[in-house]
């Protein structure tokens, strides 16, 4: 029973990362119709920033989190300006460009960190909270889930309450109609990728003390993000958050009781199943051709 409750708690904490890491992919696809294959690598850059500046050079953790967000947002904006914008009318072109970026970022990470074993960052928040003698939550994880939740609520508030957020949603619903209303789609694309990349950077920075950091960690991130995106419904932000929570619980449970690989295999199969049975996902809606 204790293991059961502990697994639920772990799953909920995990869902924060999944949601943060996937939301950028959803946002960029919704607004720009581009699948950003390098999204996992953006998370990786966030984690590397924390490792380099905090663990290696002793800068305060919170400062490096902010630094990671700024750096990754910058990379996202550069990608938008020089790759996705010229490729606006060719979705496959954008995707292939992002694969190129993926390689470049991996090589840079290898150069910065060197080859060899995965890096570890000692958790800045030590200690563990114990509830009812049996359920253990390390403070570091508690901190991450709180920050993730805060970031997601801020994003939700931004998208539903601010004019700019409305514009972002308008463009993701219908690009041409939004342009006819006088919304600058180029500017909105920049906002979308900026926000998406910032979330990825934050996810990476929060993940850094809790995971193994290596140049190829983006691979697992992008698989998770794909599953969450498809199951949640492409382009649907609430869907992505719900799917992130569900998938995190599912993945944690299968990992605890069976193995991590089986968890990923079944996740991928669920995703294929969703693509076949209900391609719009749990929260998506049908879009006419």
């Amino acid at each position: 029973m204790d293991l059961f409750i502990q697994t639920i708690v772990n799953g909920i904490i995990q869902s924060g990362f999944y949601a943060l890491a996937s939301i950028g992919l959803v946002l960029v696809f919704g607004v720009m119709r581009v699948v950003n294959f390098a999204h996992g690598e953006l998370v990786m850059v966030g984690a590397y920033t924390v490792w380099l500046v905090h663990a290696q050079h002793g800068a305060p953790y919170l400062f490096t989190v902010v630094l990671a967000i700024i750096l990754v947002t910058g990379i996202g904006l550069v990608m938008e300006r020089f790759l996705f914008r010229p490729m606006m009318n060719d979705p496959l072109g954008g995707l292939i460009c992002s694969i190129g970026v993926l390689f470049i970022l991996q090589v840079i990470a290898t150069y910065v960190g060197g080859e060899g074993p995965s890096k570890q960052v000692p958790p800045p928040f030590e200690g563990t909270m114990v509830i009812m003698d049996s359920i253990r939550i390390p403070y570091q994880r508690l901190f991450s889930i709180c920050v993730s939740a805060a970031a997601l609520v801020t994003l939700w508030y931004f998208l539903t309450r601010s004019t700019l957020g409305w514009a972002v949603r308008a463009v993701s619903m219908d690009r041409e109609a939004a342009a006819l209303q006088g919304i600058s789609t180029v500017r909105i694309s920049m906002v979308a990728i900026g926000v998406g990349a910032a979330m990825a950077g934050l996810a990476g920075a929060l993940m850094a003390p809790l995971t193994n950091i290596n140049p190829h960690m983006g691979h697992n991130v992008i698989i998770t993000a794909f599953i969450v995106t498809i199951v949640g419904g492409i382009g649907s932000l609430p869907g992505a958050v719900i799917a992130a929570v569900l998938y995190a619980l599912f993945h944690t449970f299968v990992t605890t009781y069976f193995s991590g690989t089986i968890a990923t295999i079944s996740g991928l199969l669920i995703m294929v199943l969703v693509l076949i049975v209900r391609p719009t996902g749990i929260m998506g809606h049908r879009v006419s051709e």
Binding site: L95, I223, F226, I265, V272, L275
Partner: peptide
């Protein structure tokens, strides 16, 4: 049968997911 129910972007992601699932089976 499953894959060609999808087109374009969906096919791309679907084929990626299926391939990865097969590959993970070899590992598992």
């Amino acid at each position: 049968y499953p894959l060609f129910r999808m087109t374009q972007f969906y096919f791309l992601i679907g084929s990626f997911a299926t391939g990865e699932a097969i590959r993970l089976c070899w590992i598992q």
